[in-house]
């Protein structure tokens, strides 16, 4: 269904999509499952937002992809390999190809910007080099370059607890980029930021997705932001996928389907955005 590229200049993937999720179920306890049979696929370089009310299962979905959370059943395959079957070593290798960005940035606050960014290389290192934190000259050069791309050159050796929220999130993005990832999972990357910083972060993400052909899955709770930046939107409600389509296809009816009772205020918000 999504094999038609929206970027005419970009060659179609010959074989399978980058990521395929099928019939994913996650049950934390005896009650209702957090994910209840979710299926979708993501192409190389695609920018996909996941929207839905809080508690819908967005964070769980993201973490089941790189097995930070073990799914109860269903299948995730990345670049054709079944993620659920990987042993520890290969799971680490898989994770090193998938970046992750968090609402609370998840930096080592006492360390400097460049040290945090270099952490992106740890997945590719031997046990000893990783424990010793030994980085090659080339890795340090790359880190400096990525930091410059994100406009943080002035803060290279500054401790992260001195940075603003927006700056911290840019460090988080730089760390993910240093992994040289095929895909980045973003869990509410702008939920703790002011509107200006939010716009900056979303634009940076969009830019890297396009320039470096990195697929993005971004959990968001602002519908208007999702519409503005995404190639495609997934709507999740109570662990089920209730919408999978392009932003233009997201009608107010669809939104109310995704958000249920919360939808009234959100449609109003969307209306305002279109009006302005």
């Amino acid at each position: 269904m999504t094999q038609v590229s929206q970027f005419p200049g970009r060659p179609l993937l010959s074989g399978r999509p980058l990521l395929e999720v099928s019939q994913l179920v996650k049950r934390y306890d005896a009650g209702k499952p957090a994910l209840d049979g979710i299926s979708f696929s993501i192409r190389k370089g695609e920018f996909v937002s996941v929207i839905g009310p809080s508690g819908a299962g967005k964070s769980t979905l993201l973490r089941c992809i790189n097995r930070m959370i073990e799914a109860t059943s269903g299948e995730v395959s990345f670049e054709g390999a079944s993620v659920g079957l990987l042993d520890r070593k290969n799971l680490k290798r898989l994770r090193s190809k998938i970046g992750m960005i968090f609402q609370h940035y998840n930096l080592v606050e006492r360390l400097t910007v460049i040290e945090n960014v270099l952490h992106g290389r740890l997945g590719a290192k031997s046990t000893l080099a990783g424990a010793a934190g030994h980085y090659s000259r080339e890795e340090k050069r790359q880190a400096t370059e990525v930091i410059a791309m994100l406009g943080l050159s002035d803060h290279l050796y500054q401790r992260c607890d001195r940075l603003s929220g927006g700056q911290k999130q840019r460090v988080g993005i730089a760390r993910a980029l240093l992994q040289d990832p095929r895909m980045i999972l973003c869990d509410e990357p702008i939920a703790s930021l002011d509107p200006n910083a939010s716009r900056n972060i979303m634009e940076q993400l969009k830019r890297f997705s396009q320039e470096m052909d990195i697929a993005l899955i971004v959990n968001l709770h602002q519908v208007n932001v999702a519409c503005k930046y995404s190639d495609r939107i997934l709507g999740v409600n109570a662990g089920r996928l209730v919408f999978d389509g392009r932003p233009e296809e997201l009608t107010p009816e669809k939104i109310s389907q995704i958000y249920g009772a919360e939808s009234r205020s959100l449609t109003a918000e969307l209306g305002e955005q279109y009006a302005s």
Partner: peptide, 8 residues
């Protein structure tokens, strides 16, 4: 975050 990068 480090676990997610594949760090040991």
């Amino acid at each position: 975050a480090l676990r997610a990068t594949g760090a040991g």
